[in-house]
């Protein structure tokens, strides 16, 4: 049992959720205001990470983050270290790969809030921020939470992108999925089975929590 890999995966998933979620909520909120056509274009672009094979996605990220490219050089100039094959690089890649998992449910949830409620908030004199905090966020919460759980679970299980961008450095970029792969390669099926079981348990738990928490806390009334 590779506890380092386990811990690293949890850290990666947690940081990904914490950093991605606010961005996803703001992006989704912005998208609600767009015309149908513009929204479709943006949505299509944000869905690319879901469509591309993880290895292809990982390859693009690896090239972009390497020091032959601008993003990699900027990172080097700022922090004096390489972005690829580091935990930070892995986190950045993980955030990008998970954009559709976090944005889509938040967007659907925000869209389902009737325009009459936004208008009612305005006639109540609420500021934009207050209306968002007090009305939209609580109403969209189940969707946002679903996005968070999906992102968390997906990060734990990500393999292709992690291997391409992070490599397989113990304690730095070797996540639980890669550890499982390693153990199968070295015929240690017992360890692989234990870790696979843990991943399975976490996934089931995560999905159950989502379903529990997203049970309709209120009933939307349509007159």
């Amino acid at each position: 049992m590779d506890w380092d890999a386990f811990k690293l995966s949890l850290q990666l998933a947690l940081y990904t959720v914490l950093l991605l979620l606010p961005l996803a909520i703001l992006t989704a909120r912005w998208m609600v205001t767009l015309t149908a056509r513009r929204k479709a274009v943006i949505e299509a672009m944000l869905t690319i990470p879901l469509i591309l094979p993880p290895t292809v996605m990982g390859f693009f990220l690896l090239v972009t983050m390497s020091e032959s490219q601008l993003p990699g050089r900027i990172w080097r100039a700022l922090f004096d270290q390489t972005l690829v094959f580091s935990f930070e690089g892995l986190l950045l890649a993980s955030i990008i790969v998970n954009i559709p998992f976090a944005v889509q449910p938040a967007l659907r949830a925000l869209e389902s809030i009737g325009n009459d409620l936004r208008e009612a908030a305005e006639t109540c004199g609420m500021s934009r921020w207050h209306a968002f905090k007090r009305i939209e966020l609580p109403l969209a919460w189940p969707g946002i939470l679903t996005g968070a759980v999906l992102t968390f679970a997906h990060t734990l299980g990500e393999f292709g992108v992690v291997l391409m961008v992070g490599g397989n450095i113990p304690g730095e970029t070797r996540t639980i999925s890669i550890a499982i792969y390693d153990q199968v390669q070295s015929f240690d099926n017992r360890s692989a089975a234990i870790m696979a079981a843990i991943l399975l348990a976490i996934s089931v738990l995560a999905i159950s929590i989502t379903f529990l928490l997203t049970r309709k806390p209120y009933v939307r009334i349509r007159a």
Binding site: E119, A120, A121, T123, I135, L139, Y218, R220, I221, R222
Partner: peptide, 13 residues
């Protein structure tokens, strides 16, 4: 302005 919407538009939560 005080507005009563046709759907009432009450905040359900």
């Amino acid at each position: 302005v005080g507005m009563v919407f046709q759907s009432y538009a009450l905040f359900p939560h």
